[in-house]
Design a protein around this nucleic acid. Structure first.
Lengths: 347, 347
DNA sequence: GCAATTTTGAGGTACGTACATCATGACAGC
DNA sequence: GCTGTCATGATGTACGTACCTCAAAATTGC
């Protein structure tokens, strides 16, 4: 019944050197891909590594490097609560990360300002930054700045919104199509007799919002009687969203559901409360924040879909470490999950 | 806009020694609570640690110990799919954990057999095990065995089901009351016109099932028209559950929802499919498994609440490391979250 | 105030990897 | 066969903590 692990000593670089019939220095050259090793010799070492199942001792590796990994987060500012909580999550990790030799810096940039992002990317050099994690828009100037930074030796990772065509080493974010599908699947079950559903995006030019909308529409079509209205744009801003929802509620007295796939949730709940419609319209929103939490608690919002900024920062930091130490790509990383909150599992 | 982290060198034991005006050896004695230090001297060291903000370098610490942390999971066997996935998750981590100097062993025990658990606990000694992670029942013999193991120097942690009154150092698991509440909250929104809801537990003597039931009932009462039937017991077994559900469906043609708060989900879906009622009854079940996944995909199950065995194992291992290295308790640990799955966010 | 005991200091080695230096080997072109 | 380049070996130090030994100092008991 018990499997007694025999606790075999793990292979070290010395073992690899002996097995490959080369010196320690050569093993070191191969492992850290330095120059000056014949392909044939490198192959012998690689084989020894494989046959011994050698794995670099991370503790010793970090210790020997004796230098911290410097990560800089470039995160949009503005009135967007979600970006704030991303930045907060990163800032909160500064101390903890230091224990693991990760130096974190956080820079807030003007919202949706490609020029500012490009400028900051161009400032990055290897003597104070090993990796930048950016929330970027898919524009040519940004792509060019990413390429330039990569060429200068600064690793780039994308967060929340990807730049798949760039030299970014990794992307951290959720599956936004699945998020939209999930919202529709819940809404369809909530409104089993069908009815009008309003859709509110920040901007139709935001990639993630677009994907959510696409997912929602696809699944909503499977529920008979569910009639999504054309999407409105609240520009991720509280006041605009509030005005929009007030008009919406006035012109559609028979509205049964609202899916807010962008920010501006505080405006949405304010409008619902003010018109006395809170509780009689099913509401699904995105991102856990002070206002969405309140909405859940008082029954104005039914469900919040959240992409867990803490988890995303943690995943980003883990990826940075893996990429900086190992040579290859980030393997075996679970994608960020969509978290679903009701009033009852807020914790 | 940019906050340039000044990158101060982190304090080392040498710095602490200098600041406290004592030798390195004394600092070492204090940090690793060895004997032979006057209280007064220890206080000076502690003050130096605090004022410098000294934190042990984990990499160096692990390296210097040059010995792996040996963790043993004691997990029930039987036909319980969830326990299987817990054990699988632990087994899958064996290799990965080795890189971080964690040796994992997994022992499967007879289901709900306190005597077997006690026997295995009593076998544990510090020369092959530093910490045991157990899924235990709250019985006096188990509690006594936990105390004995702790006294022998083997640290005990509880998983899924806690033993709060014992000397266990930590508990990893979800809030089962919140899980039940969430299920009711969803069910109430799904069945907005009310109706009969069936409740199926494994056994009313299982602590977690009892908590889920309690949570469900409390919230269900808030939804007018929702009428939960008295709970049935399927003993976490597929066949028994199937028979139970077949009888249930026959005697309640007007049933609108089923909450299966235990295992045996494969039997539940089989009964629904066989009677042609799949899709017309809202179904909420627990734990993602092959059969619950299939149920979600084909529309037999609406929602699955999951406690993420992978995440629990990861959290357990993190806690073991923290407890073994640091002296104090596990701080700052996020509780395991309840994951909510629909067909559309299965990934 | 002396012996016995406890507390502290000084110094070392070890962990496994990273990285630097210098010497030596091989092999090329001419 | 000579010089120059490239590949490899030999060897050492460093990272920060753990843990060991031995000697010196401080404190205690009487």
């Amino acid at each position: 019944m018990r499997e007694t692990a025999a606790a075999p000593r793990r292979a070290t670089v010395h073992d690899v050197a002996r097995a490959a019939g080369v010196s320690l220095a050569t093993v070191d050259r191969v492992l850290n891909n330095r120059t000056g090793v014949r392909p044939n010799t490198a192959k012998k070492v690689a084989e020894a590594v494989a046959s011994l199942g050698f794995q670099r001792d991370i503790s010793a590796s970090l210790l020997a490097r004796a230098r911290d990994l410097r990560v800089r987060f470039l995160i949009p500012a503005g009135s967007n609560e979600f970006m704030d909580s991303l930045a907060d999550a990163a800032t909160r990790r500064i101390e903890t990360a230091l224990i693991e030799r990760l130096q974190i810096g956080v820079t807030r940039l003007p919202l949706l300002d490609a020029a500012a992002l490009v400028e900051n990317l161009n400032l990055l050099t290897t003597d104070f930054c090993d990796c930048a994690v950016i929330v970027g828009t898919e524009e040519p100037s940004v792509l060019a700045a990413v390429e330039a930074a990569t060429r200068r030796g600064v690793m780039i990772m994308t967060l929340v919104s990807d730049l798949p065509a760039s030299s970014r080493r990794h992307f951290i974010g959720i599956d936004n199509v699945a998020a939209g599908r999930t919202a529709a699947s819940l809404m369809g079950r909530f409104c089993s007799h069908g009815g009008k559903i309003a859709l509110i995006a920040g901007s139709m030019h935001l990639h993630d919002h677009h994907e959510r909308l696409e997912g929602f529409r696809a699944v909503a079509a499977e529920f008979a009687g569910l009639r999504p209205l054309p999407p409105l744009e609240g520009h991720d801003e509280h006041h605009q969203t509030q005005v929009l929802v007030e008009q919406l509620l006035a012109s559609h007295p028979d509205l049964v559901g609202i899916y807010n796939l962008g920010a501006g949730t505080a405006g949405l709940t304010a409008a619902l409360r003010q018109t006395g419609r809170a509780g009689s319209v099913r509401v699904i929103a995105h991102e856990l924040s002070a206002s969405s939490r309140l909405g859940l608690t008082d029954g104005t919002i039914d469900v919040v879909l959240d992409q867990d900024p803490d988890g995303e920062i943690r995943a980003a930091l883990a990826a940075v470490r893996t990429l900086a130490l190992g040579s290859g790509a980030v393997e075996n990383v679970k994608p960020i999950e969509i978290r679903i909150f009701l009033r009852d599992n807020l914790g």
